[in-house]
Simulated assay, not measured.
Amino acid sequence: MAEAAFDEVIHAPLRLRICGLLSPVDRLDFAVIRTALGVSDATLSKQLKTLIASGYVASSKAASAGRDDARRITWLSLTPDGRRAFDAHVRALQEIAGLNPK
């Protein structure tokens, strides 16, 4: 288990929620995250750009078998570094709240 470490990149409210949604799964569709957060495509894209640039989230596109058009689904997942950083950040928040003393 990694040591608690507060992470400014993850801590922004929407980025924290994105990581929280991605943490228990292998990957999620962009549209699912957008709907869960209740934000616009542009807002989600901006937050994802920061997480991707930090190496915390990976993005890939794939054709959708359920669609008749050429649109592709954007899949998002936490990278191994992203999972470690998110877990360490959550532990840091727990310590701050007094829920997980050192």
Rank of each mutant, 00 (worst) to 15 (best):
A58T: 00
R83K: 14
L93H: 05
E3D: 04
R34Q: 13
T35I: 12
R67L: 02
L48Q: 04
L14P: 08
L28E: 15
L37H: 09
V32Q: 15
C19K: 06
I73S: 01
W75E: 07
A88K: 08
L28Y: 11
S77W: 12
R91T: 09
Q47C: 03
G66D: 13
G66H: 07
Q94N: 15
A97S: 11
L48C: 05
S54A: 15
P80R: 09
I10E: 00
G82R: 01
L76W: 03
P80H: 08
L28K: 15
R15G: 02
T79F: 15
D87Q: 12
A70M: 10
E95M: 13
A97F: 05
V57G: 03
G20A: 07
D81V: 07
M1Y: 13
V25F: 15
L16K: 15
L44F: 07
K46P: 04
L51N: 00
L28H: 13
S59D: 00
I18R: 05
D68T: 13
I33S: 06
P24E: 11
D7R: 03
Q47W: 07
D41Y: 14
P24A: 10
K61Y: 03
A12Y: 08
R67M: 05
N100T: 08
R91K: 15
G98L: 10
P101V: 11
G66R: 14
S64Y: 01
H89L: 09
G98D: 10
C19G: 07
G82Q: 04
F6K: 01
A58E: 04
V9A: 00
K49M: 05
A12D: 06
G20D: 12
D26N: 14
C19T: 09
P80T: 00
G20V: 07
L22T: 11
G55A: 01
K102N: 15
T79N: 14
L93V: 09
S59K: 00
L99Y: 05
D41Q: 14
P101Y: 13
R17F: 08
T79C: 12
V90N: 09
R91G: 09
F6D: 02
K46S: 05
R67S: 06
L28D: 12
R83M: 03
D7F: 03
I10S: 00
V9N: 05
D26S: 14
L76K: 04
C19D: 04
R34W: 06
R84Q: 09
R15L: 01
D81N: 14
V57I: 03
D69K: 01
V32W: 05
I33V: 12
L76P: 01
D87C: 07
R91Q: 14
D87E: 14
P24C: 10
V57R: 01
T74Q: 11
V32K: 15
S64H: 03
